[in-house]
Design a protein around this nucleic acid. Structure first.
Length: 100
DNA sequence: CCCATGACTAATT
DNA sequence: AAATTAGCCATGG
């Protein structure tokens, strides 16, 4: 299985109303170092944004990060799922954070 | 095989 | 507290 596929699989498991960070995903890979770099890249290249809830993946500091379909869209989706956002930052980020 | 790039982070300034 | 720098992994040319 490709690195990308693994990442997508994990992201798919993120429950609604929760979010995770690139860093956390990296931890799930049992690899040390800055894995999250490649993670972000993998999500960007993902061709199934419908199946993959990539909007639930944010930066470790609580900021939104990026989104192929546009950052605004990502925020809208998150809000819709119950995530409060202000100034491009997630409110109660730690509480909404989902770990593998 | 080497170089550049990115939806990142942590440390420094 | 905001802006800049440097480090690091997988992928593509």
């Amino acid at each position: 299985m490709n690195f990308q596929q693994k990442v997508l699989s994990l992201v798919k498991h993120i429950p609604k109303g929760k979010v995770t960070t690139y860093k956390e995903i990296g931890k799930a890979f049992h690899k040390r170092g800055q894995i999250y770099r490649a993670v972000g890249r993998a999500l960007k290249e993902n061709k199934l944004p419908i199946i993959i809830p990539c909007h639930r993946v944010v930066c470790s500091d609580g900021s939104i990060g990026g989104y192929s379909r546009g950052i605004k869209k990502k925020i809208a989706l998150l809000k819709k799922e119950g995530i409060q956002i202000k100034n491009n930052k997630i409110i109660d980020f730690k509480k909404k954070l989902f770990k593998f």
